[in-house]
Design a protein around this nucleic acid. Structure first.
Lengths: 229, 229
DNA sequence: TTAAATTTTTAGACAAAACTAAAAAATAAA
DNA sequence: TTTATTTTTTAGTTTTGTCTAAAAATTTAA
């Protein structure tokens, strides 16, 4: 499908933090369920009740940020999508800042970025972008929308997709659970770690890899949750 | 009076942004009116109504952040003072960041710092402090409290010690008599007023200065009782 | 010292964003 | 298709932080 060039004049709407959080969640869920995001899913993500979600959807609908018809699920409008992308942009840029400049570990950044993303200043975020050298991906390997809302095409692959003999760099994780991150830490795998694929066992999917001159064997479960580039 | 070493165990209280703003304003006003901050002054600073202030003072009093008795003005408790200082710390560190790292002008930073100061993360602010090399003063010359709440002493000098040609800021008074303060008021000199030394007369110690584009001459007596930086 | 002016507080209301409980619609199962 | 289950919405409260209008306390002035 060909994307039309659309110029959108976005009137600067005041949005509460709560409204922004709803938009962001709807944005993320839209990618998974393209035929309308349902109320319960939103409630689950925001740890709130379905009735609260219904109330908010009406509010967002009045502001023309979502297309909403009762019982039919909800879609973002172009305006809503752009706003959502700007919040995602803020979130991911702050994550880069926290990891690269303030020495946070990648599993510590989410909570703080959840707050920083709501600071309302275009100059702030664009200068931060520049300060960080216009990064395309955040510490988890997710793409950072630019100031226009354009999203860089994903360059990351799962480790399991790489052929034996190749050398790649770890750029993110799919599973962000503490257990997984602890495992990676134990194996001395972190962002930017260079990995060489030595051997792939087709029988059970285990992979023999080399990290910092150490050879280890990882399971297919690990290989399916590690993004590399 | 000698300050006792007191270890305060601060239970981490959840504070709303509104509560934090009230605390901060009371903290700033306390320095000017040490015999209790009055309701109207707070309302003026926060651009709200006196009745709203009364409501909030009760709330802050319940949380033991202020000492409040109706009609009697309000004081910060030790706990409240520490919280207020942490907000000021956040604000001023973010101002340094915005100016030094993101290229903001010194008069553009306040509004953004007003939002950033409320981001709740000790690690964030302490790492930012380190990243900025533990600055003692913000871009406006105001001192930045450290992680313990200690405030660097201002390297203040008497106005009489400054050489002709220099520009300084009024930071305090040596003579605190009502007459002197009234005189300063009449000459439009107050805390934070920028003063340029134009000419010093060695014969009688009078000094020609410029304040807000007005040129006036002050006596040696005045110059010996005004602290500047 | 009494009256006038100012400041502060109370009482009652409202909007935002959440909740509970019950009703309505949609979906799944018998 | 009819019933049962799940999902979603409505209706009515609650909490936070604000407001207006009126009452009470304090301060200033006559």
């Amino acid at each position: 499908m060909k994307q039309k060039n659309i110029i959108i004049f976005v009137k600067k709407i005041f949005m509460t933090i709560s409204e922004e959080n709803y938009l962001k969640v709807i944005y993320h869920l839209s990618n998974l369920s393209p035929k309308g995001v349902n109320t319960n899913a939103i409630a689950g993500m925001l740890d709130t009740k379905a009735s609260s979600v219904t109330d908010m959807l009406k509010k967002l609908s009045d502001k023309e940020l979502v297309d909403y018809q009762k019982y039919q699920g909800v879609f973002l409008t172009e305006k809503g999508k752009l706003h959502a992308k700007m919040i995602v942009r803020n979130h991911r840029l702050w994550e880069v800042f926290l990891v690269e400049k303030l020495g946070f570990a990648w599993d510590e950044v989410h909570e703080v970025a959840e707050e920083l993303e709501h600071v309302r200043s275009e100059k702030l975020i664009n200068q931060l972008d520049k300060f960080l050298n216009f990064p395309s991906f955040d510490p988890h390997g997710d793409p950072i929308p630019n100031a226009k809302g354009e999203i860089p095409t994903i360059a990351k692959q799962l480790l399991s997709e790489i052929e034996a003999g190749e050398s790649i760099t770890c750029v993110g994780v799919k599973d962000t659970s503490v257990d997984f991150l602890k495992y990676l830490n134990k194996q001395q795998i972190s962002l930017g770690t260079k990995i060489k694929i030595l051997e792939k066992e087709s029988f059970d999917g285990t992979i023999k890899i080399e990290i910092n001159s150490n050879v280890i064997v990882i399971s297919d479960k690990i290989a399916n949750n590690l993004y590399v580039k």
